[in-house]
Design a protein around this nucleic acid. Structure first.
Lengths: 118, 118
DNA sequence: ACTCTGATTCGAAATCTGTCTAGACAATAG
DNA sequence: CTATTGTCTAGACAGATTTCGAATCAGAGT
């Protein structure tokens, strides 16, 4: 399961850059970063992301049980998160385990930082 | 232009809550927050958001000029950002001016915070 | 080798999105 | 009052997304 671990989003291209509020983001970076936000823009994926990020790693079987959705649907959402570079997963024996990629989360968090508290 | 200023997303319902990585987000909060991430999940909207957030306020005319898109398309994207609660706009004389809502940005930033630097 | 379980991929249906053109609305200037 | 300019709404359409069931793949164990 090597292909599964390669995020489609290039974190190096996207990781950098000042917060959104510092100066207008250029088109190239926007294209690089938008898929990450898009991946989090679905309630199911947001919960999946949170479940995965809240533990060192999580088995797909546990994720599937937590939703009233078919296995293939969960698998699809995990793929979106994976291709956005937000999580990674690997098979160990019978099960596939997913982990969050904290660098990606930190990057998005930094992008949204604002001047100071209101 | 009163209706235009009411975000559809209830920031009070969404604002709260520990970071994604602290504990699994419940379904209700996920439904409340996902539209904000979704709104940022398009390259055009991400750039619009950044342009708006980088200045105290911005005229729609300047935003339209910065893209190779029709006026109505920009207007559509601004509406999505507005309904997500990320920006607000009001008409003054001939022009409509938009401002970022820093509380919303701060909320999303906080949700994505992780334990510590890698 | 066969089978069982866990997970992904495939193919299809219903719905949603991004974009456009055309038209409506708002405010200013003749 | 009408014309002009800036912005939004309405309607349309191609393409993407979400979801499913069926088929397939990967290992473990008989």
């Amino acid at each position: 399961m090597s292909k599964q671990n390669l995020p489609v989003v290039d974190l190096n291209a996207a990781a950098c850059c000042p917060p959104l509020a510092v100066r207008p983001m250029d088109a190239e970076q926007a294209v690089a970063v938008a898929p990450m936000f898009k991946a989090l823009g679905d309630p199911v994926r947001l919960r999946l992301m949170s479940m995965i990020a809240s533990a060192p790693e999580v088995c797909v079987c546990d994720l599937t049980d937590a939703f009233d959705l078919s296995g293939p649907t969960i698998s699809h959402h995990l793929r979106v998160l994976r291709e956005a570079g937000l999580v990674e997963g690997d098979r160990r024996a019978t099960w596939v385990w997913y982990r969050a990629r904290p660098e990606a989360m930190r990057q998005l968090s930094a992008l949204l930082e604002t001047a100071a508290a209101a």
